[in-house]
């Protein structure tokens, strides 16, 4: 875990706080929280594949907005992230 006294950001992933370095993407924060991003149509856990906004496997809900591509969004303090929307 990154040091919380360095330039860090705390956001909420599925109700639990996660502390990350400033500049970290939401996809990474979700991975640090130990969660898959979504459950597939057939019920499988899925995480990021392409890391560049193409595959849509990393989508989560951010601040109530569903289907956000978390690999292209930088963490902000207090952000509410929900996986498996």
């Amino acid at each position: 875990m990154p040091d919380s006294n360095v330039n860090s950001v705390t956001l909420i992933v599925n109700g639990s706080p996660v502390n990350v370095l400033a500049g970290t993407t939401v996809a990474v924060a979700v991975a640090i929280a130990g969660r898959p991003c979504r459950t597939s149509v057939g019920g499988e856990p899925r995480g990021p594949l392409c890391g560049m906004g193409i595959c849509f496997e990393c989508r989560v809900s951010i601040n109530g907005r569903s289907h956000c591509r978390s690999c292209q969004i930088v963490c902000e303090p207090g952000m509410e992230v929900k996986t498996d929307e």
Binding site: P2, A27, P45, P48, L49, G51
Partner: peptide
Amino acid sequence: PNVMGAGGLQAMVKCG
């Protein structure tokens, strides 16, 4: 999860 593209994993690591 954790099977990624080569560039995909690199991007994730660059992003923290």
